[in-house]
Simulated assay, not measured.
Amino acid sequence: MVMEAPPNRMPWPTHIRRLLWMQGLMNASHFMTIPLLALYMSTNLHFSAAALASVMSANLLCAQALPLAAGAIADRFGSHRLITLGLLLRGLGFLGFSSLDGAAAWVGCAAIAGAGVACYEGGVYGLLGRQPKECHSTLFAYNNQLLNAGAAVGPIIGGLAGLADIRVAFGFSSMVFITLGVIAYKAQFGSSVIFRRQPVMESLKAAITHAGLWRLIVASLPWFFLFPQLYVAFPMYAGQLAGPHAASAIYVVNGFVGLAFILKAKRWMLNMDAASLTTWAYLGAAVAFSSLAVLRGIEWFLLFIIAYTVVETILLPTLETMTASLATDGSQGTFFGVMSAVGALSGAAGYYVGSWLILNRTPVETWLALGSVGFLGFVTSALLLRRA
């Protein structure tokens, strides 16, 4: 039986409620600048497809591979310092984006920002995963709700800041991350939680040898490939269709639709079987991506973004819930870290393939190829998740 949260009150400790609000503010800062990042590199800095994908992949690989270590550190020593360090590193990376031009410098800044993501999420998800298992579905639904709220507000603020210069938006985002880091340091998120002092190697062994986790990871790989298209293929294609402002529009639509959907469908999602939700969401992704092979124009693309957002809003909290539920006591952060690290390989492939398809192939070839990845997810999740 899943515990349903009261409509107007989150049933968790004060530090968890504050951390969820921090998630919303963090994502608002993230989406102030991410909407125009790939487009800015291609049109203003004139980076090649390989250089653009290298910047995005450096960020992704650090963000998703390093949680393997960050999660294990959180399991051993707690989350407070990791959350603070993560926010400060992200601020430093975005500060570099606002002042540097070369591809190599941007790769370095992306790696720093990605390392910040790894530290921050290693601490946050290690802490969330330690909440009672019967709360996980509700907790991760609320987490997704506040992330979507940030994703809706962030592009609007970033767009206003970028009217003068996109670098202003980068600098503003940097200051927000640094400010949140100071707040997190003073708030000491999770410092009152009693952590089982699990040895790092013991946590890693528990995660790496867990057959159910590996079945979930394999079923998640197509999603890890498709999700980065939100940051590379989508804004670049929207820019081709209707100019740079269209790139910001897709994130506003993404945020508001995600927030509206999770508010309306949260109870339904909590009552559904997680494996079935994942399987049918993949089928929806396959149909949505493939439909763009025949439906052209910015209005159809924005309708696609609505469909994509529904899929995203189902898959993200569902995969997080299943990961937390599989985790053994004391190794929650490590389980999330292993999931993230393996997914980083698929995500990096998604960045390179997505940017190459948009810049070198026809829309028909691009969207049919991505649609086939969604269909692969449908097949693998149908075969593996019931057993996991």
Score class of each variant (00 low, 15 high):
2 V>N: 15
3 M>C: 10
6 P>W: 02
7 P>V: 11
8 N>T: 09
9 R>E: 08
10 M>I: 12
13 P>L: 01
18 R>A: 14
24 G>E: 02
25 L>R: 07
38 A>T: 09
41 M>I: 04
45 L>S: 01
48 S>L: 01
52 L>I: 05
55 V>R: 06
56 M>L: 11
56 M>I: 08
56 M>R: 00
58 A>H: 01
61 L>K: 04
63 A>V: 07
63 A>F: 08
68 L>T: 10
68 L>I: 15
69 A>S: 13
77 F>A: 06
78 G>W: 00
79 S>C: 03
83 I>P: 05
89 L>N: 01
91 G>L: 09
93 G>W: 00
94 F>I: 06
95 L>A: 14
102 G>E: 03
102 G>N: 01
105 A>I: 01
110 A>C: 04
111 A>T: 05
112 I>V: 15
114 G>N: 00
122 G>L: 10
122 G>E: 08
125 Y>W: 11
126 G>V: 07
131 Q>K: 05
132 P>S: 05
134 E>H: 08
139 L>M: 11
140 F>C: 03
144 N>L: 12
144 N>H: 12
150 G>V: 09
153 V>S: 02
154 G>N: 02
156 I>V: 14
161 A>M: 08
161 A>P: 02
164 A>I: 13
164 A>V: 13
168 V>H: 10
173 S>R: 06
173 S>A: 15
174 S>E: 00
176 V>L: 07
192 S>A: 13
195 F>R: 03
195 F>K: 05
197 R>L: 13
200 V>H: 09
201 M>Q: 12
202 E>A: 15
203 S>L: 03
205 K>M: 11
206 A>G: 05
207 A>K: 08
207 A>W: 05
208 I>K: 15
209 T>S: 15
209 T>G: 12
209 T>Q: 15
210 H>Q: 13
212 G>E: 12
225 F>W: 12
227 F>C: 07
229 Q>W: 02
230 L>W: 12
231 Y>P: 11
237 Y>F: 14
238 A>T: 11
242 A>L: 05
253 V>K: 04
254 N>K: 11
254 N>F: 13
254 N>S: 14
258 G>T: 09
262 I>Q: 09
264 K>P: 13
265 A>H: 04
268 W>N: 13
276 S>P: 07
277 L>R: 15
279 T>M: 09
285 A>P: 10
287 V>L: 12
288 A>P: 02
292 L>I: 03
294 V>Q: 06
295 L>M: 10
296 R>P: 15
296 R>E: 10
296 R>H: 15
303 L>Y: 11
304 F>W: 03
307 A>C: 09
309 T>F: 00
312 E>A: 15
315 L>D: 04
315 L>Y: 04
316 L>A: 12
317 P>E: 06
318 T>S: 07
319 L>M: 13
320 E>N: 13
322 M>K: 13
322 M>R: 12
335 F>G: 14
339 M>F: 15
340 S>W: 06
342 V>N: 02
344 A>C: 10
350 G>M: 02
364 V>K: 04
368 L>E: 05
369 A>H: 00
371 G>C: 00
372 S>M: 08
376 L>N: 00
379 V>Y: 09
380 T>V: 08
381 S>W: 03
385 L>D: 04
387 R>C: 02
387 R>M: 05
